[in-house]
C-alpha cells in the first residue's frame, strides 16, 4: 500500500484575496470578463517581454494584497515561480518587495504547488499571511523553448499557446473566503513521450497519478466535486486523461475540464488550447474564485500539471517528465448576496 500523498488541513487556510492579470489575446478569450486587469499590449509598457512578465507578477501580487484588505507589511512570505530559466521573473519581481521569498519551480503546476506549500505552512502555525503567485508570458516562453516570434513556421496540431498572464492570491489563517482543505503532492511521472510539441500527452499520466492518489487518500470520488480542473493539458491531453482514468476504473464526468482547453475561443487558432503557469493561475484567480465566492461551486479540485523539461534535456534525447499537484478548495456556503 502506497503512503498517503495527501495532507488534510486542520486549520483550513483561507484565500482572502486573489488577482489576475492577462494579455489582450487572453482578455478576448472565454474568461475575458472575469479577469481583474487586461493589458493593452503584451509588452505592458516595458522594453523587453521578460520585464513585462516581471511587472505582471508585481501587479498581481499588489492587486491580491489590496483585494485581501491587508497591508504589505502583514505579508510574511511570498511563494512564486515561473517558466523562465532560474525563475528570473519571480525572483526579480520579489526584489522590489520587502517580504521574504521562496522561489518554486513546478513548471505549469506552480500555482497548485505554491498554494499547497503555503497552506501547509499556515496550517503548521508558523505563518499568518502568505502570498502565492505565478506567471507566464507567450513571448518569453516562446523564445526560450521554441522559435523566434517572427519565424515563418507552422505549428503542429498538438501545440498549445502559452498564456500571457499572472495570478496571485493571499492565503491567511483566518478571514473570509474559500478555504483550502486538502492538498495532494504529486510524484514525477514519465511515460516516455519526447515530442516537445505534445505537452498534453506528456503530462496527462502525471495528472492521472495525482488524481488517483487523491481519490485513494481522501476516499472521495469525482462526484464529490462541483469542478475538477486540470491546468494546461489542452484538448488532446484532457481527452487522454479521461481515457487513462477510465483504465484505472474512475470515470471523469461533465464536472471535469481543463483550463487550457477552455481558455481561448475557437477563432483564436490556438490549436490544442492554452498552456503555461499563467493558464491555471489566471483561471483559478478569476473565474473559479468568483464561482466559489458566489456559491456556484462548493468544492473544487484544482490539479494543474507541469512538464519538467528543459531544451538541454530534450536535445540530449531525454523524455518529458510531468508532475501534478492537487488542492481542494471549498467555497463559502452561507450568506448568498443575490
Amino acid at each position: 500500500m502506497a503512503k498517503s500523498q495527501t495532507v488534510v488541513f486542520k486549520n483550513q487556510p483561507v484565500i482572502i484575496g486573489s488577482y489576475s492579470i492577462v494579455g489582450p489575446k487572453e482578455g478576448a478569450g472565454n474568461f475575458g470578463e472575469y479577469f481583474d486587469y487586461v493589458m493593452k499590449s503584451d509588452s505592458f509598457g516595458e522594453k523587453t517581454y521578460e520585464k513585462a512578465e516581471r511587472k505582471m507578477i508585481q501587479h498581481a501580487i499588489v492587486g491580491a494584497i489590496e483585494k485581501a484588505k491587508i497591508k504589505p507589511t502583514d505579508v510574511e512570505l511570498l511563494l512564486a515561480g515561473d517558466l523562465l530559466n532560474q525563475i528570473i521573473s519571480s525572483s526579480y519581481a520579489a526584489r522590489d518587495f520587502s517580504f521574504p521569498y521562496l522561489g518554486l519551480f513546478g513548471a505549469c503546476s506552480t500555482m497548485a504547488e505554491s498554494l499547497a506549500i503555503g497552506a501547509s505552512l499556515i496550517d503548521g502555525g508558523q505563518f499568518d499571511h502568505v502570498v502565492c503567485s505565478t506567471a507566464s508570458h507567450f513571448s518569453t516562453a516562446e523564445r526560450q523553448f521554441r522559435f523566434p516570434l517572427e519565424l515563418g513556421n507552422q505549428r503542429p496540431p498538438t501545440s498549445q499557446w502559452t498564456i500571457t498572464g499572472a495570478g496571485a492570491c493571499v492565503l491567511a489563517l483566518k478571514g473570509k473566503g474559500p478555504k483550502i482543505t486538502m492538498a495532494t503532492f504529486g510524484r514525477v511521472v514519465d511515460y516516455g513521450i519526447n515530442d516537445v510539441n505534445d505537452m498534453g500527452a506528456a503530462m496527462a499520466p502525471a495528472a492521472m497519478d495525482t488524481l488517483m492518489a487523491h481519490f485513494r487518500d481522501s476516499k472521495t470520488t469525482p462526484d464529490d466535486y462541483d469542478l475538477i480542473v486540470t491546468g494546461d493539458l489542452g484538448k488532446l491531453g484532457s481527452e487522454i486523461l479521461i481515457d487513462l482514468m477510465e483504465d484505472q476504473g474512475i470515470k471523469l464526468g461533465l464536472n471535469y475540464n481543463d483550463c487550457g482547453q477552455m481558455y481561448y475561443t475557437r477563432n483564436q487558432a490556438t490549436l490544442c488550447g492554452g498552456s503555461g503557469c499563467g493558464c491555471s493561475a489566471t483561471v483559478l484567480n478569476s473565474f473559479i474564485m468568483k464561482k466559489l465566492l458566489d456559491g456556484s461551486y462548493k468544492k473544487v479540485l484544482f490539479a494543474p500539471t507541469g512538464a519538467l523539461l528543459s531544451t538541454t534535456a530534450t536535445q540530449q534525447g531525454e523524455t518529458i517528465p510531468g508532475v501534478c499537484h492537487a488542492i481542494v478548495i471549498e467555497g463559502v456556503k452561507q450568506e448568498k448576496k443575490k
Binding site: 496540431p157 505534445d198 500527452a201 488532446l236 487522454i240
Partner: peptide
Amino acid sequence: YVKAKIPK
C-alpha cells in the same frame, strides 16, 4: 496510443 490519438 498517443500516436493514434494525435490530430493529423
